[in-house]
Amino acid sequence: AVSQTRSTTSTPRRSRRRKSVAIAYDEPGQDEGAEPQRPRWEPRDWQEQLERIREMRRSRDAPVDEMGVDKCYDTSAPPQVMRYQVLLSLMLSSQTKDQVTSAAMLRLRQRGLTVDSVLQMDDATLGQIIYPVGFWRNKVKYIKQTTAILKQKYGGDIPSTVEELVQLPGVGPKMAHLAMNIAWDSVSGIAVDTHVHRITNRLKWVKKETKYPEETRVALEEWLPRDLWREINWLLVGFGQQTCLPVNPRCSQCLNQDICPAAKR
């Protein structure tokens, strides 16, 4: 008889994996050994400061409220024409008081402000109409160049992205973000002008002092909640025109005097 032999080959053992133990500060999905996430930086007292600025701006009677860029275009114009007028008012507003920009836009609109009407206008006439806006000679050149590009490349409309807008002659980041906001009803970023730049540095709303508005924009967007990005330009521009002036700010009239790092007490 043939004896049957039982196989003595044993099943190899599965290697045990070390089970990682979650630590209290671990974030879900965080790699083992990675440092815990630190709380996002935000300025001291910023929410209280913001609420007090809103209170000071409640009357909405600053120049920006009555003659700002969003008041300069023809609301009854076709959307494409309206957007073009928004862009032109932004180009004129650089280094120019709201009152002067508003008056120049009114004179342009009285002649029929469209892409075609500007292209048909000679430089001397355009200069006479927009004078005395700041750097009006340069703006004549930029307006004509930009308008030609809009006609050739965008069918008379304005670009719908910040990246394309800043490629236009005479259009910077602040103008581009405001154009997105006003013309396209899209919040693409914080529009930082000289008022926003000055006030946010005074309030220490930037982690370290910034020298240029674009630096300030980047610093603000790192911590300021996105749902405030649209409001903050209008709010601080008017506040800067009436209270937090470039020279001799009216600290004695400011509700933030006791919690403002730059206040004169």
Rank of each mutant, 00 (worst) to 15 (best):
P36H: 12
R40K: 14
W41A: 12
E42H: 12
W46H: 14
Q49L: 10
Q49V: 05
L50A: 11
L50P: 05
L50Y: 07
E51C: 11
R57S: 12
R58D: 06
R60V: 09
V64F: 09
E66Q: 15
M67R: 15
V69M: 12
V69A: 13
K71L: 13
K71V: 13
D74N: 14
D74T: 07
S76Y: 09
P79Y: 03
Q80N: 09
V81D: 03
Y84C: 07
Y84S: 05
L88R: 08
S89P: 04
M91A: 11
T96L: 00
K97W: 00
K97F: 00
K97R: 06
V100I: 14
L108C: 01
Q110N: 15
L113F: 13
V118S: 07
L119N: 04
D123F: 05
D123V: 00
Q128L: 13
I130L: 05
I130W: 00
I130K: 00
G134S: 08
F135R: 10
F135N: 03
F135L: 14
W136N: 11
K141H: 11
I143H: 04
K144L: 05
Q145G: 06
Q145P: 09
Q145F: 04
T146S: 14
A148C: 06
A148Q: 15
I149G: 03
L150F: 00
Q152T: 14
Q152F: 02
K153F: 00
S160Y: 02
T161S: 15
T161L: 13
L165V: 00
L165M: 06
L165C: 01
